[in-house]
């Protein structure tokens, strides 16, 4: 067993873990942050994507102990209280999900794309950069739309205005 401390969604956490513990296990099983999913468990599907020191990584292929002293953001860390993050709101608005299993990873990847490439994203860039995230329900059309809209909304610093459809 080894001691571990890191910051998760702005809160410092400490634990004693088996060195084999993966970051995703630590988040889900120790911290009960079950929004981060385990899909393929082979670093292909992207359901486990979180931000490690501001960069999107696959938490199923990262040892928890490698994150000693690091800052981790999970899907639970995006919303501001009851107000969804603009990217979450965009996925809701554009129906960027069906079963929702891939959604936390998609959204964490989408925010990472905006962090790297800014708020104005064309479809080609979005599709290329979602390379590491697999959705098995809807196909990607609405996800791509959601990412483009969410990126723009993040630039405005506000949640997109809801349309009257609901």
């Amino acid at each position: 067993m080894a001691n571990l401390s890191m910051t998760v969604n702005g809160k410092s956490v400490t634990a004693t873990v088996d060195p084999r513990t993966l970051l995703v296990q630590f988040l889900r099983e120790n911290l009960r942050l079950t929004g981060t999913h385990v899909g393929c468990d082979t670093s292909q599907c992207g359901a486990c994507v979180v931000h490690l020191d501001g960069k999107a990584v696959k938490a199923c292929t990262t040892l928890a102990l490698s994150c000693e002293g690091a800052s981790v953001t999970t899907i639970e860390g995006l919303a501001n209280g009851g107000t969804l993050h603009p990217m979450q709101e965009a996925f809701r608005e554009h129906h960027g999900l069906q079963c929702g299993f891939c959604t936390p990873g998609m959204i964490m990847s989408a925010v990472d794309i905006v962090n790297r490439r800014g708020n104005s994203l064309d479809e080609k860039t979005i599709r290329e950069d979602l390379d590491g995230n697999i959705c098995r329900c809807t196909g990607y059309h609405n996800i791509v739309k959601a990412v483009a809209a969410g990126a723009e909304a993040m630039g405005k610093g506000a949640a997109p205005v809801r349309q009257a459809a609901e």
Binding site: V57, K58, D129
Partner: peptide, 9 residues
């Protein structure tokens, strides 16, 4: 190489 997440590690 790989995808953006893989390239970060």
């Amino acid at each position: 190489i790989g995808d953006p997440h893989v390239r970060h590690r």
